[in-house]
Simulated assay, not measured.
Amino acid sequence: MELEEIRREYTKGGLRRKDLSSDPVDQFNIWLQQAVDAKLTDPTAMTVATVDASGQPFQRIVLLKHVDRQGFVFYTNLGSRKAQQIEENAKISLHFPWHPLERQVHITGVAEKLTTFENMKYFASRPKESQLAAIASKQSSRISARGILEGKYLELKQKFEKGEIPVPSFWGGFRVRPESIEFWQGGEHRLHDRFLFSKSSDTWNIDRLAP
């Protein structure tokens, strides 16, 4: 396999400034809806990048669960590696790779914990199996075998077979308040279109970036 030879042309069409919304969250919602309508696999999947105390970057994929002008929301185990790193350095990066549409969105911002009410509201909306899994898994901790995890899940399933499952204290969400949002659209001959929205006070500045 010759990796240098793997390439393709981007032919879905360009992106012009006149076609952009003046608000990047509105523009994001337009692209997200188009990704959903195109039946992309996991259109809400995003890479979340954080940095540990030594400056080592880490990335993982999580699902976007809400977006509005306040920010981008995801949920996790608050004892997980990502949550611990956010506790030390709240600066964060998100990336949406919508390859079939030849699009990417890159977001930088600051993460903050959601309120207890917001956590409870979303946790109650989750399928019971997902609620149990959130309690069973001590995310990012080392386990000797998958059977331990499955055993804990079955134990909890029996315990809460008929009762309501409480929101675990170690589970919750983060809202990423964006400071920059970049929209990337593939173009022919590698002449891609990139527009960067940068926040200044309560306004957004828009710049075209060279590909």
Rank of each mutant, 00 (worst) to 15 (best):
M1N: 09
L3P: 02
E4R: 15
R8Y: 06
T11M: 05
T11A: 02
K12L: 03
G14I: 05
K18S: 07
D19P: 07
D19K: 13
S21W: 03
S22N: 14
S22P: 00
S22K: 13
Q27C: 02
F28Y: 14
N29R: 15
I30D: 12
Q33W: 05
Q33C: 01
V36N: 04
D37A: 10
D37Q: 14
D37F: 04
D37C: 01
A38I: 04
K39Y: 04
D42W: 03
P43Q: 08
T44E: 08
T47E: 04
T50K: 14
V51G: 07
Q56K: 13
Q59E: 07
Q59W: 01
R60P: 03
I61R: 15
V62E: 14
V62C: 10
L64F: 06
L64N: 13
K65M: 01
K65N: 11
V67P: 15
G71R: 14
G71H: 12
F72E: 12
F72Y: 11
F72N: 12
F74H: 08
T76S: 13
N77I: 00
N77Y: 10
I86T: 11
E87R: 15
F96I: 01
W98Q: 08
W98T: 12
P100R: 15
P100G: 06
E102H: 04
Q104T: 07
H106T: 08
V110S: 13
A111Y: 10
A111S: 13
E112A: 10
T116W: 10
N119M: 05
M120K: 15
K121A: 11
K121N: 13
P127Y: 10
S130C: 05
Q131Y: 06
Q131A: 04
Q131C: 04
Q131E: 08
I135L: 09
S137Y: 03
S137W: 03
S140Y: 05
R142D: 09
A145P: 00
G147K: 15
G147L: 07
L149K: 11
G151I: 12
G151V: 08
G151M: 07
G151L: 09
K152A: 06
E155F: 00
L156F: 07
L156M: 07
K157L: 04
K157I: 01
Q158K: 15
Q158H: 12
E164K: 15
W171V: 02
G172M: 06
G173E: 07
F174T: 03
V176M: 08
E179L: 06
S180Q: 14
F183W: 07
F183L: 02
W184L: 00
W184I: 00
Q185T: 00
E188D: 03
R190H: 11
L191D: 02
L191N: 07
H192P: 04
H192Y: 04
L196T: 11
L196V: 09
F197G: 02
K199F: 00
K199Q: 11
S200P: 00
S201F: 03
S201Y: 05
S201W: 02
D202N: 14
W204G: 04
I206E: 06
R208H: 04
R208L: 01
L209D: 01
